[in-house]
Design a protein around this nucleic acid. Sequence first.
DNA 1: TATCAGGAATGAAACGATTCATTCATTGGG
DNA 2: CCCAATGAATGAATCGTTTCATTCCTGATA
Lengths: 332, 332
Amino acid sequence: MNRPGIKDVAKLAGVSVGTVSNVINNVPTVTPERIERVNAAIAQVGYVRNAAAKTLRRGVASAVGVLVLDLNNPFFMEAAEGVTDCLSQTESFMLLASTQASVEKEAELLTLLESHAVRGVLLSPAGASLAAAEEIVQRGTPVVLFDSIATPPTMSSVSVDDASGAALAMQHLLGLGHRRIAFLNGPEDVHQSQQRKRGVDTAIARWSGKEAQLITHNLDSYTIRAGAAGMTKLLAEQHPRPTAIFCANDLIAIGASMTAREQGLRIPDDLSIVGFDDIALASQLSVPLTTVHQPMFQLGWRAANLLLEGAIVRHETFSPELRVRRSTAPPS
Amino acid sequence: MNRPGIKDVAKLAGVSVGTVSNVINNVPTVTPERIERVNAAIAQVGYVRNAAAKTLRRGVASAVGVLVLDLNNPFFMEAAEGVTDCLSQTESFMLLASTQASVEKEAELLTLLESHAVRGVLLSPAGASLAAAEEIVQRGTPVVLFDSIATPPTMSSVSVDDASGAALAMQHLLGLGHRRIAFLNGPEDVHQSQQRKRGVDTAIARWSGKEAQLITHNLDSYTIRAGAAGMTKLLAEQHPRPTAIFCANDLIAIGASMTAREQGLRIPDDLSIVGFDDIALASQLSVPLTTVHQPMFQLGWRAANLLLEGAIVRHETFSPELRVRRSTAPPS
DNA sequence: TATCAGGAATGAAACGATTCATTCATTGGG
DNA sequence: CCCAATGAATGAATCGTTTCATTCCTGATA
C-alpha cells in the first residue's frame, strides 16, 4: 500500500468509497457532516486523486491538447495564454507541446494526445495534409484548427483572414509607391503561407495599371533565423534590390531587418519592411515595425471555447488590421 | 465496445493479450512472425493505446511536468525547447504550463501534476516558499528546481549564478562612470530577484571609495509592462534621474527603454540600460541591449536530464556572461 | 524413446476511481 | 400503526493495460 487511495480515506472516515468519490466530485447529495469527515480524512492521509484511474473509468481526461509550431513564437504563446484563460473557467487544463513544424512530430503528438484521451486538440497544422488530424477526429477526438481551415469541414476552426491581411500590407506598400517588392513567405506547405500568398497576389493584380514587380521567397520556417537567411539570399540574388519587403510574420521581419542593417541598409530609407502578427515586441524594434495585427489572445480563447462547446463544426474568422509604424516609407 | 482495446487486437491476431502487450512494449522475447501479425491487427482495427490504463497499472506516467512563470518570456521558452530536446531521447514528453507567477496557481498545478503521476516536475518557483513542492517531493514525485535552490536540499536544481551575473552588470556600469544607478528588480519574493539584488549590493559595496548611489525598485512581474510602469515611476520620483538602469531581465529592460524613449530620453546618451537573460531579441532592439547572457537551452536540457537521472540530489550552476552592446555608454 | 532445459506464450489478477442498482433510514399521510 | 415515498449511503462491477506465475513447445541429450 504505497500511496493512500480512496479506500484508505473511506476507512479512516468510516464511510464507503462511493461516498468519498461523491465528496471529491462535489455530488450534492452528501450530508455536510460527512463531507467534513471525508475532507478531514483526506487531509490527514494526504490523499491525492489518481488521475489515471479517473480517466480510465470516465473514458475521457480533463485535458485539452495544444499543438503549436514553435514555442518561441510569441504569436502562439499569446494564443496559449488565451487558451489557458478560457480553460481556467472549467476544470480543464492545457497540455502544450511544439511540433517544431514537423509533420511526423505532429502525427506522433496527435497520437500521444489521443492515447491520453484528451477532450480535444487545438492544432496549428505543420503541413498541408490534415490526414493525421482527420484520423483522430474520425475516432472521436475533436480537433479545432488554429489559423487554418479544413476542407471538407470535419473540424471547427478559428483563423484570421490571412489573405486580406496580406493584401492590406501590400496595398500599403504599393500605395507608398513601391514597385519592386519582395515577399518573404513561410514554408510553402503551411496553410498560412498559402493564404498570405493569395492575398499578396490579389493585391498585386488589383494594382493592374502600373507594373509592380514581385519577388517571392519561401523560407523554411517562421523564425528570426530564417528571416535573416532569406534576406541574405535576397540581397545576393536580386539586382536591383527590392525597395520594400513584406514578411509573412514578425519574426521573419526581425531577422530580415537585422541582416539588412548589417549590410548597411537603413530602414525605412533604403528599405521598407512590413511584418505580420503584431507581437508585443514589434513596436520595440530598432525601427518600430509596420505590421498586420492579429488578435492572438482572442484567437486562442475562442478556439478553446469552440472545443468545449462540443459537437457543432463552426468556423470563426477574425479580421486583421494594418498597424502602420516607422518601418515603412515611400521609396527614395 | 467503443474504442478497440488490446483484447480486440489479440482476438484478431489470434494471440493472447499478454503477447500484444509485449509487442507494444518491444519486449524482445516475441517471435518476429507474431510481432508482424499483431502489428497488422493493430493497424487494421485502428488501435490506440490507452495511456490512462497504462499509467494506472504502471503507477507512473511517461510525462514530465514543466511549470514556468510566464509563457511569453523567451527565457522559459528557450529552456522549454531544451527540455523537449532532452526528453525526446526517451519516450517521455513534456507537460508545459504557466503558473502566471501565482503561488496558488503553482500549488494547484503541482497537485494536478502529482495526480497525473508524472515522472517529475521542473519548477520555476513563483514565490519564496517551496512548501508545496516539498510536499509532493515527500510523497514521491521528484522536483528539479529551475533557476532556484532549495535549502535544505531536498531537490536537485539548475541555475546560473545570478549574483555574479548581476555583479558583472553593475561593475560594467560603475566602470563606465555611472554613480547614480537604478535597479529595476523583479518581485521581491522570487529567488532570482533576491540573488540579483545580492549581486548588485556586493558590486556597489566593492566599489567602496567613490560614493555610488543605488535606487532599487521591485516590480510586480518580469514583463515588458512592468518594466514600462517601473520606468514611469522612476522618472516621476527621482530627481535628478539616474544615469543608468540595470533591469532584472530583458523584458523589463525593453519596457523601460520603451518608456524612456517616449519621454524623450536617448539611449545610451541620456540613459544606459543593462538587461539580464540575453533573449534572442536583445540584439534586435532599437538599441541592441547590453545584457547578462544565460545559457537557457542548456539550462532546460540539464534540468530534464537531472530529473531523468533519478535519485541523487545535485546542483548544477552555470556561469553567466556579460554581453556588451550599444545600450550602455559613459554618462554624459 | 524418454527426459530435460530454455524460451515463448498465456491469461488471471491488479491498479484506483467511478457508477449505479440496491439497501437503508426518515418522514409524512392515511 | 403501517405503508409509501423520498433521499442518503453502500459496495460490487467496471474501465484497459501490465505483470508474472504458469503452461506449452521445441530441440537436444542421455
